[in-house]
């Protein structure tokens, strides 16, 4: 079973603070989504609604055309992995995994053990004694091995070191290819994860700023690199979001799509044209007043 998610005009308020403000999204089945936002943008709130931890104050969430909240059939199709506080979990890793496995219809115990080995997790250690990185890895194992049609990772990777994160990304892609399912990865580590995403959703202050396939997003702009004066001349009048300078070389990120004529002109001037990065776009779009994206 796979799932379509329809989020319609969803709002969540914490006292006066609008954690989510009329969010509408339609997420197709079997795709990998990047949910990108700054701290406090509402990423975790949105994901916890999809996990039925709470009901929206306004609006509705439907999965496969049915209301999600407290729906037994749908709830067991969702796995939400986040940085859980595990310091009171006295159970050993093995028992901890087994307890969860019992309630996950698609859980693959064999695959879980494979991942445990790959992440070097000690099966006989109590969970609370694991280091932060290992707890993150344990969460990752649960998220992957549950094989839920809707799998959400909320910055689970922030506790892992870089090689472990890399291993996790690789596993995620491979297992998604074997068992396609809707995955939502929330992050602010955009630059190292952007290749995972098929579609990007950028949340800012409880609102959806952007929801588009990543390749479409990347065509929204370009990076122009070359001799400083030539670059300056080329990008004059364009919407510049990021500038880097190294010696006589300059690289400017613009968010105007380039025309064929402009591309030809760049080629003649010896300028290098690359795609805009999701990270830069994210920084640009969520820039606060008084803060600088371009330095």
């Amino acid at each position: 079973m796979t799932a379509d998610i329809v989020i319609d005009q969803v709002s969540v308020k914490y006292k006066k603070f609008h954690a989510l403000d009329h969010v509408s999204l339609k997420l197709d089945r079997e795709k990998i989504y990047g949910l990108i936002g700054r701290n406090g943008a509402g990423k975790t709130t949105l994901l916890s609604l999809l996990a039925s931890f709470a009901e929206p104050d306004e609006g509705s969430i439907q999965v496969n055309g049915k209301p999600l909240f407290e729906n037994a059939e749908l709830m067991q199709q969702v796995t939400f992995v986040y940085e859980k506080d595990l310091k009171e979990e006295s159970e050993k890793v093995k028992a901890y995994l087994e307890a969860i496995a019992e309630y996950k219809p698609n859980y693959d115990a064999e695959y879980a053990m494979e991942l445990v080995e790959r992440f070097n997790l000690p099966l006989n250690k109590p969970v609370y004694k694991l280091s932060k990185g290992m707890q993150s890895a344990l969460n990752a194992v649960i998220g992957l091995a549950s094989r839920s049609p809707i799998t959400m990772f909320d910055e689970t990777y922030s506790g892992m070191d870089a090689p472990t994160r890399e291993l996790f990304y690789q596993e995620l892609l491979e297992d998604h290819a074997r068992y396609p399912r809707t995955m939502i990865l929330s992050t602010h580590l955009v630059s190292e994860m952007d290749y995972l995403f098929e579609e990007a959703v950028i949340l800012h202050k409880g609102k959806v700023l952007l929801h588009e396939p990543v390749d479409v997003v990347l065509e929204k702009g370009a990076s122009v690199t070359g001799a400083a004066d030539l670059v300056d001349e080329f990008v004059a009048g364009m919407n510049q979001i990021h500038t880097q300078k190294l010696g006589g070389t300059k690289s400017v990120m613009v968010i105007d799509p380039l025309t064929d004529e402009q591309l030809a002109r760049a080629g003649q001037s010896g300028l290098e044209i690359g795609p805009v990065s999701l990270q830069d776009l994210f920084i640009h779009l969520t820039k606060e007043e008084g803060q600088h994206g371009a330095k």
Binding site: S52, E70, N71, A72, Q77, V78, T79, F80, Y103, K104
Partner: peptide, 11 residues
């Protein structure tokens, strides 16, 4: 724990 594991409050 149960809700986080995908069980309804009712069950």
């Amino acid at each position: 724990w149960f809700v986080k594991t995908g069980i309804t409050r009712k069950d």
